[in-house]
């Protein structure tokens, strides 16, 4: 008696979850197929492998200085990530290990900055960078992103799990505070660093609005900006655009598949 109802609910569950999974993955399939088709076929809704992959790739490489664009993206992302991790882990460690009433107060004030929308910062930041003569430089892209309340928060939360006996033992051995941080904390917390690395790297790699404002010449542009301008042409060549989106998505896709656990841990960050 109970079986037909059960079967119906199973069909419904699998049907729903399956449909959602399919819809989630479909744009990726479409993107890969698109790279093999001509622009006309793509916007006419063709859903089969075509023969223009080589042409699209060749066109992409002639229209875009691919090595330069990737170098720009990689430079910005790696610089931003290393600096953010260094500054934020120092602060997360400092706030948790050297607690004082004033620092706790500042920490709470710092968390309020999480609510500041970037739109309210971009005009002053743009004027600041202009005055400093940094418009159209990669430094201007990286600088405002280093101090991140969210990553400081992430490191402080993770530091709560850092065994304080390790620190006490190191102190007895006569290590200075910076040595304890560098030689004990950093190696012990490497999975925290890995997760934070992924999250900051992805954010920097995919960042759009601020680079769009600051980077004005073709020599400084990132892959994200290039895809956007290719796609907003009056008659965009979708085959070429698809090649670009695949190349732009590949690094983060690779990180996701090879480091899935840290990836998800980084995404969750604050919850635990």
């Amino acid at each position: 008696m109970k079986n037909p109802a059960r079967a119906a609910s199973a069909v419904l569950t699998y049907g729903f979850v399956g449909l959602m999974a399919f819809l989630s993955v479909f744009p990726f399939i479409w993107m890969v197929l698109g790279a093999t088709n001509s622009s006309i076929d793509i916007i006419k809704g063709r859903l089969a492998p075509g023969e223009t992959l080589a042409v699209n790739v060749a066109k992409f490489f002639t229209q875009v200085n691919v090595p330069l664009v990737f170098w720009n993206s990689a430079k910005i992302a790696i610089l931003a990530t290393l600096l953010t991790l260094a500054v934020s882990s120092l602060a997360g460690y400092g706030f948790e290990m050297f607690r004082s009433r004033r620092r706790d107060g500042l920490y709470r004030a710092m968390l309020l900055t999480l609510m500041i929308p970037f739109a309210a910062l971009m005009i002053p930041l743009f004027i600041m960078m202009g005055k400093a003569g940094l418009i159209n430089t990669h430094i201007a892209v990286v600088l405002p992103t280093i101090g991140s309340a969210f990553i400081v928060f992430y490191f402080r939360q993770s530091t709560k799990a850092f065994p304080s006996e390790l620190r006490d033992a190191a102190k007895v051995d006569g290590l200075k505070e910076w040595q304890i941080f560098l030689y004990i904390y950093v190696p012990v917390m490497r999975s925290t660093y890995a997760a934070a690395f992924i999250i900051v790297f992805m954010t920097a790699w995919n960042n759009y609005l601020w680079p769009l404002i600051v980077l004005q010449s073709n020599e400084t542009k990132t892959i994200t900006l290039v895809i956007s301008s290719l796609a907003s042409a009056y008659y965009p060549d979708y085959g070429v655009v698809m090649v670009g989106t695949i190349l732009a998505t590949l690094p983060t896709l690779a990180v996701f598949f090879f480091m899935q656990r840290q990836f998800v841990q980084g995404m969750l960050g604050s919850v635990k």
């Binding site: 710092m110 002053p124 101090g147 991140s148």
Partner: peptide
């Protein structure tokens, strides 16, 4: 000693956040 170390660890992050978040938001 404890307090000075505490400030040294948190200063770079707080400085950057003050310069690129707090100052611009007050300026706007």
């Amino acid at each position: 000693y404890y307090d000075v170390n505490g400030w040294l660890f948190v200063a770079p992050a707080l400085g950057l956040i003050a310069l690129f978040m707090v100052y611009p938001i007050l300026w706007s």
